[in-house]
Design a binder for these strands. Structure first.
Lengths: 358, 358
DNA sequence: TTGCCTTCCGAAATCGGTTTCGGTTAGCGT
DNA sequence: ACGCTAACCGAAACCGATTTCGGAAGGCAA
């Protein structure tokens, strides 16, 4: 406590050298004799010397820090993958001893102002933006600020910056194909507000999937709601109360799919037998739903790691447009998908269970 | 892009003043005339000037940053509350314009070394430690470093530092009481490795609950496993394979409880009717389990916020021991608890469902 | 007019590093 | 003995802010 942590000056005094010599010794300058370098390093970690990062970064001119912008909606159903993402990011940054800052926009200041302050104050060398809107002002801001960034997801027009995304459109085509193959012809869609690009993509996939299978599109079968379980329940309720309810439902989120299951149960409808449900995300929790939720799983184990590597590459000078990575989601069949049943016969529940790919 | 962000010198030149005057004007020193102050501020935000934080912090001598230490185990079943916690922390820090760093120990360096480097390099003014071990070397390290910190949870001996925790022992007494009141006399316990203090506390609560209800303690009814759903499944399997299996099971984690439900289902045992199960955490997801999981819910909506406020207070000079806050968990009855059934009669499923407190 | 006290601002030190530039010393060849 | 080149280290500028100290200008009383 009493001993202020040793700094360069103290270390230099201890060694009978000047700060400049010590600094260069520690940084392996070739014009310092190997003997001195060794001596200095030994003394350094004997005294527990750690260079002050604020001073160092001020001097070398880079903050050696990147920032992850937390998604806004953090409620009781917080996104579990935030932790995974941060872990991956941290891993990439650790290799360089860079720091990871997380920031949520100060409510009193606003998103854009927060970001602008962050980069102009020289605190960060790069930024990770997640869950962008169709036309997200944050990417334009970052571009005009000339600050490296990478987006987790995409915007509507995504040709001139770096992003890492999972192909939601393709995933929904796959889901609809799967359901069509099982005989379903009335397939409902439960979506999120279309200001989010991911919501639009998945809707596009749904539509494309329908036409690809020669099914016609009924506007009544498309329900938009907040992407929470309650939102899913409400939307599913509307769908099932139609005169001609769907025999299958695809949901843009596992959370909404869970809500959908809830709505079905409260109507004594058995998911996977009477009505099929497919979610999206591949949340581990889906395994424990009733019945276990079939879903389009994102391969997001390494998303954070990739985002980190991409961002660092851009900071190093690579062209952002070189990094536009589209991953594919894959169908994880659990038990909420099944063949269409013509009547409400008490058919056999579909129980095929495969484990998701780790 | 081309324009390097304006710094004090540039701003001063623009105004025809010196940097010292401009700096003091921006910081509302009284020895600068009000007129000049206004003029300077106007010019500052017209030019979009933001003080370089590295320089500023070096000068004022505090990093204005606190760090959250990520828990290690971040797998497919990542902790959803990490995001919530970070949100709360960020909120507290935003009020002062402080930064939030997240760090996971560099695998190649080790936990303690990472921490030591972090504080000695002057990057952080305080630290949040989560999920401590019984005898966690990190708290001793922080104490010897003289760096403010707060623990989310407690260690075995927790009298000389600041912490915020939920009373796991009390919670398990409550859970056992509840089950005993329902007539259960053989109650199993599925726990986590006892190196974690939370695991020990909850075991203590279980034991105390038993004796409080005059039940005797059978070592065979205590199973320890990793706190994942698979761990829960394995442990529950062992319990149910006993000659005299329990009629109720308490689990230290909702995740383990979900695994337990799995084990019961695979044995054609109906949770809540044949065997009661109570989890711990109050995860939102539990609502969608089959059947919905009864659990001891932590009031963790504001944990992050409180941790942040506590840490800031300590950094401001308050005595750490003033902050030792114990919250209570409360029973959220969903559908996996029910009265004991003497035989394997097909009794009525317990369906009381109350919603958790928001 | 002189002296003194405010009011306002500039010069310079400081935080703790990095990096450029220049100066000693030693070694070597001739 | 002389000159030249490496090898090694010190002095000082710099990064961009904050803060102490002191000085100039103006106002007021005597």
């Amino acid at each position: 406590m009493g001993n202020k942590s040793v700094n360069l000056k103290a270390l230099a005094a201890h060694l009978g050298l000047t700060v400049s010599t010590v600094s260069r010794a520690l940084n392996d300058y070739p014009d310092i004799s190997l003997a001195t370098r060794k001596r200095v390093k030994a003394a350094a970690d004997q005294l527990g010397y750690r260079p002050n990062q604020n001073a160092r970064r001020l001097s070398i001119g880079t903050p050696e820090t990147v920032c992850y912008l937390m998604p806004r909606q953090i409620g009781p159903n917080a996104q579990p993958f935030v932790a995974q993402l941060l872990a991956g990011l941290g891993e990439a940054l650790n290799e360089r001893n860079w720091d990871l800052l997380v920031s949520q926009a100060d409510a009193s200041v606003g998103d854009l102002a927060s970001i602008e302050r962050l980069v102009k104050s020289g605190r960060i060398a790069g930024l990770v933006i997640s869950r962008p809107l169709k036309n997200d002002p944050r990417v334009k801001l970052m571009q005009s600020l000339g600050c490296p960034f990478v987006v987790h997801g995409r915007t509507e027009k995504s040709d001139d910056y770096a992003w890492y995304d999972v192909d939601g459109e393709d995933a929904f085509v796959t889901a609809v194909n799967h359901l069509a193959r099982l005989g379903h012809r009335r397939i409902g869609f439960i979506g999120a507000p279309l200001q989010y690009q991911f919501a639009q993509e998945r809707l596009d996939g749904y539509v494309r999937g329908l036409s690809h299978n020669g099914l016609d599109q009924d506007p009544a079968l498309i329900q938009i709601a907040e992407f929470t379980d309650e939102g899913g329940t409400a939307a599913a309720g509307l769908l099932m109360d139609l005169d001609e309810p769907p025999t299958a439902i695809v949901c843009v989120t596992d959370m909404m799919a869970l809500g959908t299951l809830e709505a079905l149960h409260s109507r004594q409808i058995m998911p996977g037998r009477d009505v099929s449900v497919i979610g999206y995300d591949g949340l581990h929790f889906g395994k424990h739903a009733h019945p276990p939720l079939t879903t389009m799983a994102q391969p997001q184990a390494h998303a954070g790691r990739r985002l980190g590597d991409i961002l660092l590459s851009i900071i190093d000078g690579a062209a952002p447009t070189k990094f536009q990575e589209l991953q594919r989601a894959n169908l994880v069949q659990r038990s909420t998908d099944g063949p269409v049943t013509t009547s409400t016969s008490t058919g056999q529940t579909h129980v095929s269970e495969r484990e998701e790919s780790r």
